[in-house]
Each structure stands twice: as structure tokens, then as C-alpha cells.
Write a protein that binds this DNA or RNA. Structure first.
Lengths: 327, 327
DNA sequence: TTGTATGCGTTATCAG
DNA sequence: CTGATAACGCATACAA
């Protein structure tokens, strides 16, 4: 159906190698006589030739494709980061294949399997698993790899926010507001970010109630319902989805609880709830991923070290009003 | 490096064909003697054999992969829909390759090009372009295709919400609240959804101010700033991102404007702004995409017709309070 | 400057 | 039941 090198070779009375060389462009093409070169190029555009990337990949073992496997693309956090990474990678000549494990460890394994069989050039992974060994059971150690958001012990190429610092500034802000007791709504403890955040909060406050479940709105909703009897002064959620669930469950309440949360809460400054948010630097996270991946893709043996970025605390007006202090 | 059929054949004193047949499984495998079958299978697992999908695809012209090319994966609307489609497709044995054109027509063309060269089995597209011809210039007419969210004239396989109805119920709700004049913050008019929504609103209300720009928060912010001099009673935004920008720019205002918007606004019921939202049915949109794609993938020549889903209007408490009426 | 031949790892055809 | 062997479309080492 679609024309191949052979078709063009026939059409132009040349051989496949000549055609291949011409269409390869660059230095190789210039070693071909101008006449045949023009003739071939002409035929190529006339016949609407498009190289078959599958065949090319099989031959060269390069696909110019990087995969990003995230834990939940439905989460705007990963959507935005995916968007940023895609743009950056695109500027460097790679296309991005975005996959979604949906917080399901089995799907993660499957995708890792499939991806490694598909000759991707590199992988950026937001892992569900926590063991280096388990990971390298599925993919080659040779595959250019960057771990995003959830560091794995022993893997140097990783980009994440400093969870201790992020949780620290959140706690600082709450403490300065005189808060002593919190209810904790946490994501699964097997995910390092959720666990660490929860640990630190628990370390610095009196945790009067604690909930754990999938990092989805639903968990936040259910937690809030159970809290309704004795509403705590503060609810800390280990990510934005959980907080979203909590917030959506809050009807009109005279004195709503303070919400402490990680990652962005949309329109938070307008919400009539006091909110403290520990925000990650998304553009920087994305750019660092690319920075760590590119040298690996180029086969450069540069020394790579984990990148750990600081977060910043942001409060909204309702919080500032209640606690008489500025951002 | 990684073992191939040849390696296994050597190891088991058989031929590639035998190995291939055994590993193919099913009816083909059962035509092989139990002894050799076991021997081969054993060797395969022992050597950690993984079929090379690139080679297989080159040979069979099937990749078991569907691509979803969206206009902006940073928009939670598409993130959620991507997540839903991925899950559904996964159940049917396909993996999803999610690509992002970032509302950039050139990137869309590039991705279409690359995807069609990559032997994907099917494509779900949220198009930026509006011409059937332009599209089929890049991809084959034979490629199983579903157009999502922004129908293209002449393409039957398409899933979208009924923009007229969606805009209609939004206008109805505003009208019932006694609203006569609106400011309009619209996305690019070359995108059918934005244009149609804007048209209908303009048809039913007195548009006192009008802004147009990329469907990003920034456009909403800028529009709001320009409106500050003479704040209208109502601002209608043609999507959630624009509204997000508007909302984030609203500081404490005595009597904030009513916001009319399409798609979900997070935590809207708590916001101290009267909001009317015309919401699409995301899970249904996603499922319909898959429903329209699957028969095409299977090569069934069923009759396919555009699916147009209804939207529903939702108001928040602030709106209900101001206008004395329930949802 | 150009052509021939080989291989990438599979599947599929055709013998035996 | 099994084994050669020919594609799939491309890139490339080696000849000429």
C-alpha cells in the first residue's frame, strides 16, 4: 500500500541503498550525485513516501521515543507534568509515549513489560513499586531511566521534591498558627511520598484521627464523613486528590477546619476554608527529568545524582485572616 | 543481549519455527508434540525470553496499541478522559499511547505523521484541525479512527457532547435567574466547541464585552483584569481553564459576578461565587470512544454513526442562594 | 558514486 | 509433527 524504498528505487531506476542514503539526508546524502539525488527526492515526495518507523527501529534499535509511565494521569498533577515533559522532550527531537498505570501495580508491571519490548529509548517512571530489584526484573538496567516523584533506593537518576522539607514547611506554618491537633487523611503507605508526609506530620502534631486509602477523592470524602461527629481543628491530606474529596464534602460549616495539603488546590485563595498548601515546582521537576535523561540517551557516561527540589508553602486568604499573618 | 527465537531454537535443538509455534500458544502450539513443547517452554522461561514487539509488528502489521492524541493533557478534562479510555482499552487487550499536541497545530501534524508511521492499530483524536481532507492527508483513511469532542464534518466515527444543548441549558439557567447581559471569555474560534458555545450564548444574551484567546488560565486572568473597570453581572467562559483563570483573579469583591462555564470547576460548590456549570459525562464519552473503535479494530464493517451526548447543568450553593432556586 | 547482500526478530508458507 | 526459507522495510558493510 504505502510506498517503500523498493518502490522508489524501481521508480527511479536506482537501488534501495541509494534511495535510503538520499532520504537519510546529511553527510550521507551529499555523497550522491546531484542528479540522482534530485530524482530520488522528487520521486519520494511525488509518491508520498513515509519511512516505516517500525522497520527503522528494528534495524537501528532506536525509536526516538521516550515513555513516561505515571501512576495516575487523571490527577492534574501528573497531567501537567506530562504536558511539560512532552514539550521539553519534543524540543529535543523525541516523542513522548504517555502511559498510565492507574495506581495499579499489576498494570505497572504489564506496561513495563510491554514498553521494554517496544524498543523505547528511555523511560521516565513514577513508580508504584519500591524495590530496585523488582524493577530491573522487568526492564533492562541498560535502559536510560529516570525515577520521578518517588525515589527508589539505589537508583541515582531520580527527580523528586524534598518530602521532609515540604512536610516541614507545612508543619511550620500550621504550628505558627497555633495548631496542635490534626486529623490525617493519607494515601497508601506503600507509596513513599504519602508515607513520608504522614510520618512527619504525625511526628510534629497530635494526630487525633487517621484515615488511609487510595489517593482518590473518594477516600477524602469518606474520611470527612467519619470526622463529622467531632470535627478537628485541622485536617492534613497527603495529596491534592484527597483534599479535593474532603473539601467537596464540606458544606456550610460555621468554623471550617484548616486544611493542610500537598500539591495545588485549584482556586484555593477564594475558598472560604483556611488552606495551607505545600507546593512542588512542576516546571522544574519536568525540566530536571529531561536533564537527567538526555545524557543517558546520548550514551554519555556523566555522573548522575538524585535531584531533590524544595517545595514552598502557600496559604490562602481565609487562612491568613484567621491567623493574622501574611504569606 | 536479550534472547531471541534463534537462541531458544539452538538451546533446545529445534528450529525457530517450532519455537515460534510453541510460544504462539493456542491451536498452533497444540500441533507440537508435548515433549518438545515442554522443552521449548521450559527453555523460554529459563532464558527469560521476551518477544520483540517491534519485529512482530513489522511482520504482522499489528501492534495492539491505540493512540490517543489530545489537545492538552494538562487540562484535567482530558487527563480524566485519558485515564478512563486507558482503563477501558486495557480491558480489551490494547495498550494506550497518549500523545499531546498542546493546542499546537504543528505538533498535531507531526504526531499524526509519526503515529501513522508507527503502525498503531487505531487512533482516537481530539482534533485541532477542522478539515477531513487535511486529516486524511496525514493518516490513512483505512486507519480505525474516532474523533473525540470536536466533530469533523464527514467523519462518522465521532463522540462528543451536544454543544447546542449544553450551551442551551446553561443559558436557560442563567435566564431563569433573570440575567440579561454577559461578558464572554472564549477560547479560539477555530475550535468548534468554543465557537459554538460562544455563538449560542451571544445569541441569547446581550454580550457587553468579549475576549478571545488560547484556552488557558492566562486568557481568563487577562480578561478579568480588563473587565475590572465595569464588572458585568455575569461572565461566561467557554471552558474550565478560562474560568479557572477568571476565578483565580477574583479577589474579595462585594458582589462577585455570576460565572457560567462548561466542564467541571473543582470545589465549585464551596466557592463564594455563583456558578453555573454545564457538565459533560466523561465516563460515557470515554466508553463511547472505545465502543466506536473496537469494531473497527476487529475489521467489522458495522455502520457507525456520530454519538452526541447530552450535558447537564449544575449550579452551586452561592448561585442558588442568590437566585432563590434549587438545582 | 552506486549497487549487492546481509541482518534486525518475527510470522507464515511450503515442504517433508 | 517439524524444519528450511521467505518475507516485513530499512540501514549498512562491503564491493565495484
Amino acid at each position: 500500500m504505502a510506498p517503500t524504498l523498493v518502490d522508489i528505487a524501481k521508480q527511479t531506476q536506482t537501488s534501495v541503498s541509494t534511495v535510503s542514503r538520499v532520504l537519510a539526508g546529511g553527510a550521507v546524502a551529499r555523497r550522491i550525485s546531484k542528479e540522482t539525488r534530485d530524482r530520488v527526492q522528487d520521486a519520494a515526495v511525488r509518491m508520498g513516501y513515509r519511512p516505516n518507523l517500525v522497520a527503522r527501529t528494528l534495524r537501528t534499535r532506536r525509536s526516538n521515543t521516550v515513555a513516561l509511565l505515571v501512576s495516575d494521569i487523571g490527577n492534574p498533577f501528573f497531567g501537567q507534568i506530562g504536558s511539560l515533559i512532552e514539550q521539553s522532550l519534543h524540543r529535543h527531537g523525541y516523542s513522548l509515549m504517555l502511559c498510565n498505570s492507574g495506581e495499579d501495580p499489576e498494570r505497572e508491571l504489564e506496561y513495563l513489560q510491554v514498553l521494554s519490548q517496544k524498543a523505547i529509548d528511555g523511560l521516565i517512571l513514577v513508580p508504584l513499586m519500591r524495590q530496585k530489584r523488582q524493577l530491573f526484573q522487568r526492564i533492562s538496567e541498560k535502559l536510560p531511566l529516570v525515577i520521578l516523584d518517588r525515589p527508589i533506593a539505589g537508583i541515582e537518576a531520580s527527580v523528586s521534591s524534598d518530602q521532609d522539607q515540604a512536610a516541614g514547611i507545612l508543619c511550620d506554618t500550621l504550628e505558627r498558627a497555633g495548631i496542635k491537633k490534626v486529623a490525617l487523611v493519607a494515601g497508601p503507605r506503600h507509596i513513599i511520598t504519602h508515607r513520608r508526609r504522614a510520618e512527619i506530620v504525625a511526628q510534629r502534631f497530635d494526630v487525633v484521627a487517621r484515615f488511609e486509602g487510595p489517593a482518590q477523592k473518594e477516600t477524602g470524602r469518606q474520611a470527612f464523613i467519619k470526622l463529622l461527629g467531632a470535627l478537628p481543628e485541622t485536617i492534613v491530606c497527603t495529596n491534592n486528590f484527597l483534599a479535593q474529596g474532603v473539601i467537596e464534602s464540606i458544606a456550610q460549616i460555621d468554623r471550617p477546619p484548616v486544611i493542610g495539603v500537598f500539591d495545588e488546590v485549584p482556586a484555593m485563595h477564594l475558598l472560604p476554608l483556611p488552606i495551607v498548601c505545600s507546593m512542588q515546582d512542576l516546571p522544574m521537576l519536568a525540566e530536571c527529568c529531561v536533564t537527567q535523561l538526555l545524557p543517558q540517551l546520548r550514551g554519555e557516561m556523566v555522573r548522575i545524582e538524585p535531584i531533590v527540589l524544595p517545595a514552598r508553602a502557600v496559604t490562602n486568604q481565609a487562612f491568613q485572616l484567621r491567623h493574622f499573618q501574611a504569606t
